[in-house]
Design a protein around this nucleic acid. Structure first.
Lengths: 197, 197, 197, 197
DNA sequence: GATGAATGAGCGTTCATTCAT
DNA sequence: CATGAATGAACGCTCATTCAT
């Protein structure tokens, strides 16, 4: 097995086990066993468990970011762009439930808080299409003029929640339902128009 | 210290430590120490750690449910009822950040999944004002005709998210912002009217 | 409940629970609960758990000794006396399985070793009919001229074993079988006669 | 220290401490300390304490069974075979007092009861020379026609008892005494002949 | 005197990490 | 390098004993 393969195997095993059993239910020895490597070997690739988890997340994020970009164009209308991104995101979660579960674990942990702090407040910019979109949406007066953080919450709150509920089997998200859910999110985010009875 | 006080201290200590460090970061010995009691004492009040956590959640839930009901009337319009409940909920979280953090931990754990399963699918009814409200909203054609689970996600997703972000210091939710956020949630949930440019 | 009654209840509860679950499976709190007294109360009657167990044994021994003496006469032939005592002993065990189980536990523990040391080597004499019987049997040349300890083992070894196996349900000791078992013990202990084909 | 040595050390330490202080008086940490290994190391060799004890017993049993078979022939007379086995057994116990004490502890515990149940009632046959011998003895009308269980008790009851008393220092079993004790056991078990004064 | 809540040392067991091979 | 056996601190939990009421 090549060095790269070995790393790949460790990452895969860790993702699976953490997604299935949580951080605390996935001992390093078990991860090593599933990866088909020695327990000590993991430490050649990752300084320790925390670092491994953080790096794993980073890799998932990168890959999912690339996915979101596919077919995405900054030239299309805000609404279309929003729907495109959200749909892609839900699809990604539904098709990769392990990834979803891992990401969920990650966010609901001290790692996640630090990560979000960096993302929202820090200078670690550049990579976030959503941020761009929301800033665009606000400045063009298509979206509500709310703090960015809240727009994020209005979008990601429901999206993560429905993905979770689908994965847990509480609902079945077929295309129509995904679409209607995202429309609802959009309704929450968009600047409301004058309404006539 | 009276028996009731001791239990109170344990509950407070557990809540604090679990909120701060998560279930796994809050060993029984640490909880005991913070409560100012012996390690064995906790087991006079709770059968084991799992039971303690479940009971703690149940108590929080009960108290918060009572709070939500205050000033709530089934006779008022759906929208008003929705805003009342959501506002009360966000306020409760903001004013009791430890409770929020604990509840968050609880939901993001096997306990929480089982709990949600009971709540959403099971027959364990009666206590949930939100469920009532959403069913009412759908049948009166005020809310979108989406599965209950999704309406829940459209409401709680953002609410929990903004509460978290406030508690983490990413935003400051003053009254106006709370109000506007909830309005946005409502926009997502309500059936959209015919719009004129 | 009178003081004497209370003590009685504690003794009964301790006997039952220790017989059923062993010394380590019978916590003081459980004994107190079954006796219907407070946990601290036990310590008014017994200095600690060890002392309680020792005293419990002493009481059982005394009562069983009295039972063995019933209908026993030093004037009857050795063989008859042996059979009388052994039969009474087996009967006692069978009819009081809890007592048997407790005594067994006691002997198979540090207490039992110390007790036996006292009984066999020490000066703590006087109360033991068996010792008298065996010494009598040896001096009258009816029993084999073996060390007292070994005669004890030849008699009690099988008796305790069959009682145990009856209580565990491995055999059913009806009268005939008891009688034949004791005869076999006697055959082992008695001086063997000249044999003709 | 090699892997095999380490296991050996653990087994030795466990045997010693359990023999000396009983199962409950031999904590895993103490066993580890005496074996000169870390506490967790034991669990690399044994799933848990119960399994360790059971396996330890199995190993002792196997070795002692092999010992008993040495020089044993099914073609010799019943009596001779009986004496051979019993002598070997007592010798084994006397020369390995720790093994004796451990085995005693084992039998006087839930493990032992289950084991005996299997051995006596179950179908787990094949390995037991004594059972074979007794069945042979009965069918050839050399031994008393008593249930197998009782024959076991008549033989093992005294043997275990004298071994114990030797180990505890209550008697000293030199060859002659061993021989005479076993003869006495045989007298108890054998079918008695017609006797002339 | 009687109580039973409180104690905390001690238990069996786990697991992130190290390091000799 | 890769390994996986070894480690030991830390966990959840029990229970003999104490002592304020």
């Amino acid at each position: 097995m090549s060095k790269q393969d070995k790393r790949e195997e460790i990452v895969r095993a860790a993702l699976e086990l953490i997604a299935e059993h949580g951080f605390h239910g996935a001992p390093m020895a078990m991860i090593a066993a599933r990866a088909g490597v020695g327990a000590g070997t993991i430490y050649r690739y990752f300084e320790n468990k925390d670092v491994m988890i953080a790096e794993l997340f980073r890799e998932l994020e990168e890959r999912s970011n690339q996915l979101l970009q596919k077919g995405y164009s900054i030239d299309k209308p805000i609404r279309e762009r929003f729907i495109h991104l959200c749909t892609a995101l839900i699809r990604y979660f539904i098709e990769n439930p392990l990834n979803y579960r891992f990401i969920e674990q990650f966010f609901n942990s001290p790692y996640g808080v630090a990560y979000r702090r960096d993302k929202l407040l820090g200078t670690k910019e550049g990579c976030n299409v959503f941020k761009e979109l929301f800033e665009d949406g606000i400045s063009r007066q298509v979206m509500k003029d709310l703090p960015l953080v809240i727009l994020f919450d209005l979008a990601f709150g429901p999206i993560l929640a429905v993905a979770r509920d689908h994965i847990l089997g509480f609902i079945t998200l077929e295309d129509m339902l995904i679409s209607r859910t995202i429309e609802a999110c959009w309704d929450g985010i968009q600047r409301q128009h004058i309404i006539t009875e």
